[in-house]
Amino acid sequence: MNIATPVMKRTIKDFTSDQEVRWCPGCGDYAILKAVQKTLVDIDADPDRTVFVSGIGCAARFPYYVSTYGFHTIHGRAPAFATGIKLSNPELDVWLITGDGDALSIGGNHLVHVLRRNVDMQILLFNNEIYGLTKGQYSPTTQKGTRTPSSPQGSVDAPLSATLLALGAGARFVARGIDRLQKDLPGILARAHAHKGASFVEIYQNCIIYNDGVFEGLTEKGIGEDHRILLEHGKPMIFGRNRDKGLVLNHDRLALEVVDLGEGADTGRLLVHDETNKTMASMLAAMEGPDMPVALGVLYCNPDASYEQEVTARENHDRVDADRLNAMLRQGRCWTVGEDGTGSGG
């Protein structure tokens, strides 16, 4: 029997704080904030049980703008704070907001460990391939040769891949989205939320001031579709403006290849996305332009027990009263000294 009960659905306004948003006009962070707020509505999040934790950076200002609990911590260390929060209260729903500098430079160590431990939280990495807050220096994801105030002749460092790093660290959920692809982002975020354990989502974000347009090739109408592929579990890997390209595995080279899906093409060779396949996820994560599309959506999802669950299962959280504490202090060998000063073993 189906009894229809009217549900008072929360709205985006219910997840908006009274603080004025201070990002630069046109910053990609606005779009991500909207997508997250929409996701919170979609998943019917409880503001009283939701905590946004962040490090430092433009992205990390995020918690001030969401009317849940929020903790803006220190540069790079948000994963450690979030781990402490989950260990203290596994019931809380924790979202971690970080930037490419915050997560991959100063906080690289913590990111690796929160992923390998599989602490249950959503980690959203706003990757603008630049240090925004400190006015535009190159970051660990900045393309080689980029001129910035600290690399006037072009940066020399090779960039790293956040998703490959996450997979290498043992992340059990790895996804990618783009600020401008508003249609896809809430779905990806909802999947991240549904996954129990550490869910890692890299979100390409445009910094309009210091690194404008780095992701334009992926988002521009009419062109972007040819350079990105939205993965869906169990679906053949097809992409392109006209859905006329596909991904196949070249067995000789053990590499992915793009094939044209013209008339009479052999679609039987097309790869079908299996998000539980880590090898495939790694190959998909590694794809980059101009020859290969950038992989979006859920690249990998293969749940395992989460850290805080395993830890708390080993502990006893019953109230500890004075009698139990007294017994604890008296474990092992004790002795009693009587009024006359003589001792007796016990």
């Binding site: 905590v51 934790v53 903790f71 911590t73 220190i74 260390r77 994963p79 450690a80 704070f81 979030a82 781990t83 402490g84 929060i85 260990l87 203290s88 209260n89 809380l92 160590n109 913590h110 690796v112 460990h113």
Partner: peptide, 19 residues
């Protein structure tokens, strides 16, 4: 923790959450 910084941060996180 993975280092002393993570240790203190996790402890602060725990205090924030009520431990």
């Amino acid at each position: 923790a993975e280092d002393e910084i993570a240790a203190v941060c996790a402890a602060i996180g725990a205090s924030y959450a009520g431990s």
